[in-house]
Amino acid sequence: MDRLRGIEYFVSAAELGSISAAADALGVSPPAVSKLLAALESRLRIPLFTRTRRGIVLTRDGEGYLARCRKILEDIESAEAALTIPAQSPRGTLVVGVPPNLATYCIAPALHRFRGRFPEIIIHLRRAYRDSDLAAQGLDVLLALAWLGKDDLIASRLAQTRFLICAAPAYWAKAGTPQVPADLATHDCLVYRIPERPCLISGRSLEAKSAPPSNSGPRPYATSKAGSSLLH
């Protein structure tokens, strides 16, 4: 027999004091309720009801069984209700791997809005790069400035960036202003480069003169601002 259904039928019949009333409440026929209650008593080997002309009355054993059955049904309802909470209000801890520059300029300013929308999610930011091992670092998600190129991860593009050619006025006055991408080959360039990706301008690879590439934003910016080179 279906134990859970038997408990539901038993509780309904006990609370309403009538098999017919229980059948109406459950949307089934009275014989269906009677049959399941009889099977329940047979399995337990204990009479749960005393049948009278006016209806049914719980035995002493039936009263004790009713209290426990009510608790079982309440626990089931509570468990099912708890499962719907995450879908309505996400909660928990999210460990996000992110490069330092991206964390400083993009993620940190957006955290306030994120917390306002998802107050029950705790964000932990950890320094990580595109070649980071998510499992080894305990990361739930990785924000990278490039496609990961890993078959075991699911990647989605969140946004696009663009690179600009910048320099201090003092540098332009000293070295002149490039007119076409090829002119950059004669300039001292501090190139912000994502590891393992070429620096492209108009679809062509750019080889900077003298200055090595960098993947750290603030230091090249400070050097370029001082007028010693242009920044790409």
Rank of each mutant, 00 (worst) to 15 (best):
residue 138 G to W: 12
residue 60 R to M: 09
residue 203 G to S: 08
residue 57 V to N: 01
residue 110 A to T: 08
residue 231 L to R: 03
residue 99 P to C: 01
residue 214 S to M: 04
residue 31 P to N: 00
residue 95 V to N: 02
residue 75 D to L: 15
residue 191 V to E: 03
residue 223 T to W: 14
residue 210 S to L: 11
residue 151 D to H: 13
residue 213 P to A: 13
residue 50 T to E: 13
residue 224 S to V: 14
residue 37 L to G: 02
residue 47 P to Y: 01
residue 128 A to L: 06
residue 104 T to Y: 00
residue 176 G to W: 00
residue 73 L to F: 04
residue 36 L to S: 06
residue 5 R to I: 10
residue 186 T to V: 12
residue 19 I to Y: 15
residue 154 I to C: 06
residue 79 A to M: 06
residue 164 L to Y: 01
residue 186 T to A: 12
residue 196 E to K: 02
residue 204 R to E: 14
residue 78 S to R: 14
residue 184 L to R: 01
residue 192 Y to K: 02
residue 129 Y to P: 08
residue 8 E to K: 10
residue 65 Y to A: 10
residue 57 V to W: 09
residue 106 C to M: 07
residue 53 R to S: 10
residue 110 A to H: 04
residue 23 A to D: 03
residue 131 D to G: 07
residue 228 S to K: 10
residue 174 K to G: 07
residue 96 V to K: 02
residue 80 E to N: 05
residue 44 L to Q: 02
residue 41 E to P: 12
residue 81 A to G: 05
residue 69 C to P: 02
residue 112 H to T: 02
residue 113 R to K: 10
residue 75 D to F: 15
residue 113 R to I: 01
residue 134 L to E: 07
residue 187 H to W: 06
residue 167 A to H: 04
residue 219 R to F: 13
residue 123 I to N: 08
residue 86 P to V: 06
residue 75 D to W: 15
residue 122 I to V: 12
residue 2 D to R: 14
residue 82 A to R: 12
residue 199 C to W: 02
residue 64 G to K: 06
residue 24 D to I: 00
residue 76 I to L: 13
residue 146 A to T: 08
residue 179 Q to T: 14
residue 61 D to I: 00
residue 192 Y to E: 09
residue 191 V to N: 04
residue 138 G to N: 11
residue 179 Q to G: 10
residue 49 F to T: 03
residue 167 A to G: 10
residue 9 Y to C: 11
residue 116 G to W: 01
residue 88 Q to V: 06
residue 83 L to H: 02
residue 92 G to T: 03
residue 94 L to K: 05
residue 149 G to S: 04
residue 26 L to Q: 03
residue 120 E to A: 12
residue 224 S to H: 06
residue 121 I to Y: 13
residue 172 W to I: 04
residue 62 G to Y: 12
residue 221 Y to I: 15
residue 97 G to P: 08
residue 28 V to C: 07
residue 16 L to C: 05
residue 169 P to Y: 06
residue 23 A to K: 07
residue 26 L to Y: 02
residue 159 A to W: 06
residue 99 P to V: 10
residue 217 G to W: 15
residue 157 R to N: 09
residue 185 A to T: 14
residue 183 D to W: 00
residue 104 T to D: 09
residue 10 F to R: 00
residue 108 A to P: 01
residue 28 V to Y: 03
residue 53 R to A: 11
residue 157 R to Y: 00
residue 82 A to D: 13
residue 92 G to N: 04
residue 202 S to I: 03
residue 55 G to P: 01
residue 75 D to H: 14
residue 90 P to W: 05
residue 66 L to N: 05
residue 181 P to D: 05
residue 230 L to C: 15
residue 106 C to D: 03
residue 20 S to C: 00
residue 30 P to Q: 08
residue 61 D to Q: 09
residue 126 R to G: 09
residue 80 E to A: 06
residue 27 G to T: 02
residue 15 E to C: 00
residue 219 R to H: 13
residue 230 L to A: 10
residue 56 I to N: 01
residue 226 A to M: 08
residue 190 L to M: 10
residue 50 T to S: 12
residue 84 T to N: 06
residue 59 T to D: 09
residue 165 I to K: 04
